[in-house]
Each structure stands twice: as structure tokens, then as C-alpha cells.
């Protein structure tokens, strides 16, 4: 009896297939756009060549690229501020039930307030552009950060905490050896989720209350009906989010290499 043996595809073939699977959706969208550009005027569907030209211009023109950097800086500053405040609140909430009962409804209330309302409040309450945007970024991402860190702290294994406590750690060591590694996966997930939210909110904030940044530039493109420019500025933000998500994924792959990988995945 002859045994038929299945030959497994080579590494190169697997890598090519994986790359194609990832790139294919983008290629399809780009092709459809390019097709549309053949039938519609440029102010509706500009050709991809024009869009990429504008992208390149933004990247090589300092006065324009500095707007991209300003937006990136605002996103990162807002997220960092919200994360620090949110983590501190979460620690207080996990330590005290009454603090938790007091803060939870307030944060839930904040979650229900639209980003645009925060923009209006910020314009009324603050004078400078940067404090306004920082305030908006913090207020829109703070509840999510707080609840995510709180959930992570509450979900920590009691057995492991007890085990570490049995060695009588100082507070700093307890944080370093137990709490931070235990909640890090949830923190990174929170950053990934909030990064997307923040990139959308920052544009709204800049659109209304700034004199620079991607949101402000988008407003300029809208006023001159420059679709290629609008797309090019949007893509700058998309690139940033993709790069930032890539960095977070890289951190995850290094920091969580201890995790067991099942051969039969979900």
C-alpha cells in the first residue's frame, strides 16, 4: 500500500500568501477608487497618483509636515495624560469601594458626552489652543482608560497576588513584580483602542478650535474643494495610527512571549 504524504508549503510561499492576504483588501479599495476616478471629476474622486503626490508633498514640506507632527504630538500628549489620570483613578477605585461608587457614575456620564460637546466646552473654558485640545483629548479618552485599567486590576489573579504578598513585598516591588506585568496586556489593548478614538477626536478638535494640525488642514482642503489634499492629509493620520499600532503590536510580541500558543486557535 502506498502512503500519500502531504507536502507542506515552503516558508516563502506561506509568507507570500500571508502578505497578499493582508494587502489584498487595500488593493481592492485602491483599484475601485482609481476606477471611480476615471468616471468622476477630480474634486470628487481624484486619481491615486494625485493623492500620493500630495502625500509626498506633505512629507517633504516642513511647514506641512510640522502640522502632522503637531497632531501626532497632541494625540500622544492627550493619551498619555488620560492614561496617567485614568490609571491613578483606577487604583483609587480598586482600593476603595466608596471611591469606586462615587467615580463610576461620573465617568459613565462623561462617556455619554459627545466629543463635539467637549470641543465647545473647551473653547468656552480655555484660551490657548493646546490646553483646549489637551482637555478634549483627555476628557474623551479618560473614561475608557480608567475602566480598562480598573477591570484589569480587578481581574488580577487573587492567588498570584496572595503568593507575592506572602514574600512581604514593599509597595513598589508589588507594583513592579506583580501588578504591572499582570495588567500590561490590558493596558496595551486600551492604548490600541484609544489610539483609534483619539485620532478621530483630535481631527474634530483641530477642525473647530485650532490654527494648525491635520484637522485644520482638512478644513482648508474642504474650503477649496481639494479632495486629493483632503485624502492626503487623512492618510497622514492613518499612517500614524498604523505605525503606532505596529509599535504596540511589536511591544506585545516581545512582552508577551511567555504566553502559550495553542496549535488549535480560535
Amino acid at each position: 500500500m502506498t502512503m500519500l504524504q502531504e507536502s507542506s508549503p515552503s516558508w516563502g510561499v506561506v509568507a507570500s500568501r500571508r502578505t497578499l492576504t493582508r494587502v489584498l483588501p487595500f488593493l481592492v479599495v485602491a483599484a475601485l477608487w482609481q476606477l471611480a476616478s476615471l468616471f468622476f471629476p477630480p474634486f470628487l474622486f481624484p486619481s491615486l497618483v494625485d493623492v500620493f503626490k500630495r502625500c509626498f508633498e506633505i512629507l517633504v514640506t516642513w511647514s506641512e509636515f510640522s502640522d502632522v507632527l503637531a497632531t501626532v504630538g497632541r494625540i500622544l500628549a492627550g493619551l498619555a495624560g488620560a492614561f496617567v489620570i485614568g490609571a491613578a483613578l483606577a487604583v483609587l477605585m480598586v482600593r476603595s469601594r466608596s471611591v469606586n461608587e462615587f467615580l463610576s457614575p461620573i465617568l459613565t456620564l462623561f462617556q455619554g458626552i459627545p466629543a463635539l460637546s467637549w470641543v465647545v466646552f473647551a473653547i468656552i473654558w480655555f484660551h490657548g489652543i493646546e490646553p483646549r485640545i489637551f482637555f478634549i483629548m483627555v476628557m474623551t479618552t479618560l473614561p475608557a482608560f480608567t475602566f480598562q485599567v480598573l477591570a484589569a486590576l480587578q481581574a488580577m489573579s487573587r492567588d498570584l497576588v496572595e503568593m507575592v504578598m506572602s514574600f512581604r513585598p514593599t509597595r513598589t516591588k508589588l507594583f513592579r513584580v506583580m501588578i504591572i506585568p499582570a495588567i500590561l496586556p490590558d493596558i496595551l489593548t486600551a492604548w490600541k483602542v484609544n489610539l483609534g478614538n483619539a485620532s478621530r477626536v483630535v481631527v474634530v478638535a483641530e477642525l473647530v478650535g485650532a490654527t494648525g494640525g491635520v484637522g485644520y488642514e482638512l478644513l482648508q482642503q474642504q474650503q477649496v474643494f481639494d479632495m486629493a489634499g483632503a485624502l492626503a492629509w487623512t492618510l497622514q493620520l492613518v499612517f500614524f495610527v498604523l505605525i503606532a499600532q505596529g509599535v504596540l503590536t511589536l511591544i506585545e510580541s516581545v512582552a508577551f512571549r511567555y504566553r502559550a500558543v495553542s496549535e488549535r486557535t480560535l
Partner: peptide
Amino acid sequence: FRGHMAIVFQSDRLLPWRT
């Protein structure tokens, strides 16, 4: 009692992120 007392638990309670 830091360093004076050690506990072996019912389950191993190893920190999964540590070798």
C-alpha cells in the same frame, strides 16, 4: 517576617510572565 517565612501553596502559583 520578610525572609523568615515561606509558603508552598496547593497550586504552584508561578508567575506566568517569569521563567
